[in-house]
Amino acid sequence: MSNTLDLKGIIPPVVTLLNRDKTIDEPAMKQHINELIESGVDGLFFLGTGGEFAQVPIHLRKQTAEIAVRETAGRVPVLIGTGTAGYEETKELSLHAQHAGADALVIINPYYWNVSEDHLFSYYQSLADSVTLPIVLYNFPGATGQDLTPDFTVRLASGIPSIIGIKETVDEAGHIREMIIKTKEVRPEFKVFSGFDDHLLNTLTLGGDGAISAGVNFAPELQVGIYNAYLQKDFETAVHLHRKLAYIPLMYKLDTPFVNVIKEAMLIRGKAIQPHVFGPGETLTDKTRGELKDLLAKAGLLSSAVR
Results as ranks from 00 to 15, higher is better:
Y111T: 08
A128G: 08
Y124C: 05
I135M: 08
Y123C: 06
D129Q: 13
L133Q: 02
P134W: 03
Y123I: 05
Y111M: 11
D118H: 13
H119V: 12
S116M: 11
Y111L: 10
N114V: 13
L133E: 01
Y124Q: 06
F121M: 10
S126L: 10
I108M: 02
L127R: 04
Q125L: 13
S122C: 10
T132P: 00
L120C: 08
P134M: 06
P110L: 01
L120Y: 05
S116Q: 12
S116G: 12
I108W: 00
W113H: 12
D129H: 09
S130K: 06
E117W: 10
L133R: 02
E117T: 13
P110Q: 01
N109S: 07
Y111S: 11
D129I: 05
E117L: 12
S130E: 09
V115F: 11
W113L: 14
V115P: 04
H119I: 09
V131Q: 01
S126P: 02
L127V: 11
Y124R: 04
Y124G: 04
Q125K: 15
L120S: 05
Y112C: 11
E117G: 08
A128Q: 05
P134S: 06
H119N: 14
Q125E: 15
L133V: 02
D129V: 04
E117Y: 14
I107E: 00
E117K: 14
D118R: 14
F121S: 06
Q125T: 10
I135G: 02
V131T: 11
I108C: 01
A128D: 04
Y112D: 09
H119T: 14
W113I: 12
L133W: 00
P134I: 06
Y124I: 05
S116C: 12
L127T: 06
L127C: 07
E117C: 07
S130W: 03
S122A: 14
T132Q: 10
N109C: 03
D118A: 13
N109F: 00
E117P: 01
P110R: 01
F121E: 07
L133M: 08
Y123T: 08
Y112A: 12
I107P: 00
S116W: 09
Y111G: 07
N109P: 00
L120R: 04
N109D: 02
D129C: 07
T132I: 03
D118N: 15
S130C: 08
S126Q: 14
H119M: 13
L133K: 01
Y111R: 08
W113P: 14
Y124A: 05
I135S: 03
